[in-house]
Simulated assay, not measured.
Amino acid sequence: MSRRAADGGSTPGDRRILIGTAFCVLAVLVVAGLGSVGRPSGRSRADVRADATRGYHVADPAEGDRIAADLLAAPDADEAAPPAPTATSEAVEPLPVSDPLEAGDAAPTPAIGVLLRPGEDGDPRHVCTASVVESPDENLVVTAAHCVYRDAFVTDIAFAPGYHDGVMPYGVWVPSRIDVDPRWVADRNPDFDVAFLQVRRPGTDDRIETVTGAERIGFDLPAALPARLVGYPDSREQPIDCRNTTTAYTSTQRRFDCAGFPDGTSGGPMLTDIDPANGRGTVIGVIGGYQEGGDDLTSYSSWFGPDIAALYDRARTAKPNPTE
């Protein structure tokens, strides 16, 4: 089941169709051949098949500009925030296990925020959590694959780092490119429930990493690590967090036991080795994977091993348009 993405998308079980006659079967096949109406990306099934092969989406800049303008039209959306901390240290913040073992209120931080979609009533709604991670071009965000690809790529989204109470203090950043593993697109394999977004701030040449700072990203790290899990519930306007030691659920899934991470927290980072000088750490997972995130007591992440490392390498080095 999927509990963590608040995008209103249906699950495979919700889309069961009872077909009573051969005529209905034929009609469905004809519709499939002609294309799909009302999919998130508004593209044809042929394009979706191409995405399944390629595993990436290049965004329409004009659409991104419109989405950013719509989101920034919300009251207080562009309220300024102080610069992200630049200090660093060799220290590591202690991460004692939360007591009780339940998520609680957390202060927003510049490098973690929400994925937003424009609401029909003019108010933005946040649907998932994401975080800035280090990359050569200083423009990369990580989240869960199920936040950005269901039946097709979700294109009407933007990232608001440091979000709280409707305020987008570090601006609105729209994807220029989205990368997922083709094996997620093919059959939503929970071992590949990770996505990377190259983002831009419309009307500027800003690099998000220079504005918000960035979390590091770690691969092939031990199963048992002290970590802080962060996410934005869809029903709240500030983040929550919890501290515990991660474990291996399987060889391809990382587990984090803590109650209270509801819908909307998908894509939220599991952070270890947090530098107390700036509050940033190393991302070792994002809420997703098994059950697309977990249940009321436990959160999961696809294992950040060689496959996710290869996806990261592709995303961080890719040109926004592969034909360039």
Rank of each mutant, 00 (worst) to 15 (best):
E120F: 11
A107C: 03
P110M: 04
L101F: 08
A111H: 10
V172T: 15
D65Q: 14
A111I: 06
D60R: 09
P110R: 05
E134Q: 13
L140D: 07
S98V: 03
T143F: 00
A74L: 10
P136D: 08
P175E: 03
P110C: 06
G113Y: 01
A107R: 15
D165L: 11
D76S: 12
D121K: 10
A80F: 10
F159E: 02
G171W: 03
R117T: 14
R177W: 03
A68W: 00
D99W: 06
A130C: 05
D78A: 15
A107F: 06
I178S: 15
R117I: 13
A81Q: 13
A73W: 09
V148F: 00
A130L: 03
P82K: 09
A84C: 04
V132D: 05
D165M: 12
P82L: 12
P118N: 07
L72H: 07
A160V: 10
P83R: 10
A152Q: 15
F159P: 07
R66Y: 02
A69R: 15
P75L: 08
A59L: 15
P94Y: 08
P85K: 08
P108D: 05
A103G: 12
P108A: 10
P82V: 10
R66N: 09
I112P: 06
D99S: 15
D99E: 15
T109M: 12
C128Y: 02
R150C: 01
A158P: 01
P124M: 08
P85I: 05
S89Q: 11
